[in-house]
Design a protein around this nucleic acid. Structure first.
Lengths: 250, 250
DNA sequence: CCAAAAGTGTTATGTGTACACCCATGA
DNA sequence: TCATGGGTGTACACATAACACTTTTGG
């Protein structure tokens, strides 16, 4: 009996699917707790929601728990965070009845995880294409793809699908890039998430014609080895894209 | 201390936003428990998730709990059911720490709720436009709009918004009508949900050009007081609409 | 014959897509 | 001056929106 849960009760936990773009590939952060026997499995960052002791102490909010889990990984405290789905199948955790509220977090490029082996906690980025095979593309996941704890592979899959879908009708792609960014940066987010190239001229017109998606900064990026320097932008105030930026052949 | 929850623990509950079309108006089912002091508030059907006693009894699945709550209202056991969102703010229930997994259910026309006062349980349909004021349209909800328990007004609002949005890119409208149905029946679902008329000829073309949305039955409806009888259809196999059926001026 | 609802046709307008072409920079 | 990537122009295919018109029923 390795679990800390109490039989007969329900433990509410939070798990965070933290996505970013690393080297042009959509990647998810996984952690591993080396202390435990079951620690050979990689898992999503997260943990139990503090329920509160009595009426004076109402306990912790779900989103606060999610953000704390995000901070504990050492990569960031800010960034886009939204609720994904709740997983409550009775058999999903063999040790206890655990209901997990999953969150989806999106962050700009390249934060390096804390505790790369220290503290008995390991954390690293995994390209999602190594974890969830895409239809027709991947043989059967990467050969060194890790086994995920519990139903965390399903949660990752749902998070990635949500992110891919939301790129179509929300300005969420801008959450993946640092400000200021170029339209090519933004385009590469779509290309990495959807796995297909987009036509740069048409992408530019689409984005600029959507009010509030991006705001020009009025400066140009430093050119890097040939090519005209690109204009710089920051995130706009829009919360939805009308009309949506549809991926083709869905 | 009227609650049945235990201080120091967390109770996981399920609440169901059950929507249907009644007299051309999008309506939600609310219940009232007359036994309790707090019973003056109307609330969504639902209840606690059975956690399970031990390892032999793993407890009840969230979706099973939602469907049981749906059955308990006496309107139906079948129909579309999907997870909506989870509400876990510490102060949402003053009596206990309650995390509620909300579900969205869609049903065809006109089921009559069981227990219209008997069993100490009342249930009735409320037009959603009386509960949640639409921008610019309603003054401030209906004069006899009920106060909803806890954060159930927020949950109803989220459920209605989800339903309205999903009509655009999913064949979910067909869940609101009994089979077989006419295209006018289907069009009235959109008109009721979006509060705006649609052009019948264009709507017809849109629906019929979307593969798998509806399937012709090969019969005509009985005419009712003038007008050409309409062709009948049943639900198709499609799970998404490409391209979407967008509401205008969003 | 008239009203009403279903269904078809037609056209203007807009949007997506493909691709030719020009611009600005480093080597 | 060439390669490279950013940015503009444009033509065609297709989707949407508006509405005239035909069909089929009941009164």
């Amino acid at each position: 009996m390795t679990g800390s849960g109490s039989a007969g009760g329900t433990v509410v936990t939070v798990d965070v699917v933290l996505l970013t773009l690393r080297a042009g590939r959509l990647s998810v952060l996984l952690t591993r707790d080396d202390d435990r026997v079951r620690g050979s499995d990689w898992r999503l960052p997260g943990g139990p929601v503090r329920p509160g002791e009595d009426l004076e102490d109402p306990g912790e909010d779900l989103e606060d728990t999610a953000r704390a889990a995000l901070e504990a990984t050492g990569v960031a405290a800010a960034g886009h965070l939204e609720q994904l789905r709740t997983y409550g199948h009775p058999g999903r955790d063999p040790d206890r009845r655990a209901v997990s509220v999953a969150y989806l977090a999106l962050l700009p490029n390249l934060p390096r995880p804390r505790g790369d082996g220290r503290d008995g906690v390991a954390a690293r980025w995994w390209p999602v294409e190594d974890l969830i095979p895409r239809p027709g593309n991947d043989p059967a996941g990467s050969p060194d793809a890790p086994a995920l704890a519990l139903d965390h592979d399903e949660i990752v899959g749902d998070g990635v699908e949500r992110a891919r879908a939301k790129l179509e009708y929300s300005p969420l792609a801008a959450a993946f890039v640092d400000e200021p960014f170029t339209l090519a940066d933004l385009r590469r987010v779509y290309e990495a998430a959807w796995g297909a190239p987009l036509d740069p001229p048409n992408f530019r017109r689409k984005v600029l014609s959507t009010a509030g998606f991006v705001v020009p900064v009025g400066a140009r990026a430093a050119p890097r080895g040939g090519g005209r320097p690109a204009e710089l932008y920051r995130r706009g105030e829009a919360t939805a894209l009308h009309p949506p930026l549809l991926r083709r052949t869905v």
